[in-house]
Amino acid sequence: MARFILMRLMHSIPLLIAIIALILLMLQLIPGDPVQAMVGDYPVSPAFREAITKQYHLDDPFPTRLLSYFTNLVQGDFGYSYQFQRPVLDLILTHAPRTILLTVTGFAFAIPVGILIGLISGTTPNRRTDHLVTTASLLVYAIPSFWLGQILVLGLSVKLGWFPTQGMQPMISRAQGFDWFLERVHYIALPALAFAVHEGTRFARIMRASVIDTLSQGYIMTARAKGLSRSSIIRKHVLRNSSLPLVTIAGYAFGTALGGAVLLETVFAWPGLGLLFVQAVRMRDNMTVVAVVIFAAIAIILINLIVDVLYALLDPRIRSRA
């Protein structure tokens, strides 16, 4: 197992370095003044320009600058946002947990529901039920989650007034204890739902395909020959074996959830990493843009690594090989 992890690390680290190098190379390609490109639309005085040039080795050749950037990165220095007037790492660390909260809440609904729908659709002896579920999930999957968010806001917040339209918490709140919790649930409900619907249909589709694949396996025939009931075949043989591939899918989906968060957080003004990224892009706060992308790359590669290890632990065939 240790060797397996080591091998995956050997694969991941060069990938990460290459991504960061590529991003910095793109920063080089921005037309115009490099100092201006770094700080974005922030006004630049001559003294400031000199400081920046020196700090980021702008006069040095690209490899030197790459090296200095890596040195800073390893020390936890992601740069400074002149628009937000804060170190970028600081910004990331305050925003990331909110995105994680939203994503995890969404997945907490999407995964069980998706697995259940896929399981029902894949195992039902009734072809029409399956057709109905398959077509419905295909259509629902076509709804962009940010538009679904808008529609949910329109219906449930604007018309019915059940949920707040935006934000993560009320401006002023005196709620305590459980009420405090309920208040937050109110705010997270719609964005999490919009996220969960999209991801849930995806899981349902993948689960269905996986279930159908499992059902064609010989050991299902063996289970039937043993005289097991339909429900215990599903519980003991179909569910677990079909869910295994979903571990990988869920992990990758979690890693790339930032992509969806960019749009969804904008709809609901949810102050997470996605919204930060969009704001930074709009304000041309390039230090933040670069840092968020690099942070995302690190997070995704790390999550993929964890997922691969987890999968290897769950599947005895891979476990013994690793």
Partner: peptide
């Protein structure tokens, strides 16, 4: 069955 590997649950 003919192929005992496929007819046993691998997990």
């Amino acid at each position: 069955f003919q192929d005992p590997l496929g007819y046993l649950n691998p997990t």
